[in-house]
């Protein structure tokens, strides 16, 4: 019971902070919308390339941008804990009788809420630009779930890194360094059969690519589950591994105190 209430209070606090900084809310939405619009327009003729598959480019790009937006949001999720460390809030919470896991779970719940909102906005924008989402509401729910799973996995990894570096600049640099290659070494912009072999090989280990592959399937009328299930399982595995890593990072953080 105490774990639930502790988690609730941290969740409410995190949500309030998020919405009190409108700039961040705006940036986390505007950036992916711009990606969707600019890439969708500039590369619209990509769909005509032989071997692309014939569908419209926005149909192809849409799920990828949804995944990318939650991944980028997740990659920066650790900034919150660095701020809490700097302000002494993290230590105050650790001294208190609060469940330690509530500190992480409460913040993750807030990330989940904001990622769902973000994913739905992206889906809306993609639909406005011409994507059909033929799998209907169920497909959209599945797509959003996969996007949030990717975002949370990245979010926990970001928190892990944050607890090691404890500096905003370092985390931001690490986030950019990691997300940029993940974006380009995936099948997000172009089918993997059209890119060099090494990119395709790398993409097999790329969480963004797992999410994109699975996401593209679930929004169709007949998803290929042999693609969805393994890729989603990798994401679940990444989530579990990152949870274990963040616990170790908390222990390491406390050892340095």
């Amino acid at each position: 019971m105490k774990l639930l209430t502790d988690t609730l209070w941290i969740f409410v606090r995190s949500l309030k902070i998020y919405f009190r900084v409108p700039f961040i809310v705006l940036m986390t939405i505007i950036q992916p919308v711009l990606w969707m619009f600019l890439f969708g327009e500039v590369f619209s003729s990509m769909a005509d390339i032989p071997g692309f598959g014939g569908e419209s480019y926005i149909e192809y790009l849409g799920p990828g941008i949804v995944m990318m937006s939650t991944m980028i949001a997740g990659a920066h999720a650790g900034l919150g804990i660095i701020n809490d460390h700097r302000e002494g809030i993290l230590d105050r919470l650790l001294i208190s009788p609060m469940y330690r896991s509530a500190i992480a779970i409460g913040a993750l719940l807030q990330e989940t809420v904001t990622m769902v909102i973000q994913a739905l906005i992206m889906i809306g924008v993609a639909a406005l630009l011409g994507a059909t989402f033929s799998g209907g509401l169920i497909g959209i729910i599945q797509l959003t779930t996969i996007a949030v799973l990717l975002g949370l996995g990245m979010g926990i990894l970001s928190t892990t890194v944050a607890l090691f570096v404890l500096k905003e600049e370092s985390l931001t640099a690490a986030a950019s360094l990691i997300t940029m290659p993940l974006i380009f070494l995936s099948g997000m912009f172009i089918p993997l059969k059209l890119v060099p072999n090494w990119v395709e090989n790398f993409a097999a280990f790329n969480p963004l690519n797992w999410a994109v592959e699975a996401g593209r399937e679930v929004i169709t009328t007949k998803p290929d589950w042999s693609v969805v299930i393994p890729n989603s399982s990798y994401l679940v595995l990444m989530f579990i591994v990152s949870c274990a890593l963040v616990l170790l990072a908390f222990q390491k953080y406390q050892k340095t105190l």
Binding site: R13, K16, E87, G88
Partner: peptide
């Protein structure tokens, strides 16, 4: 503690309420 512990993004009342709830 030395490094405060007050949440700058919370009001005075919110800080106290959260601390009390914890």
């Amino acid at each position: 503690s030395q490094s405060s512990g007050v949440d700058p993004m919370g009001t005075g009342r919110e800080n106290l309420m959260l601390q009390g709830r914890i």
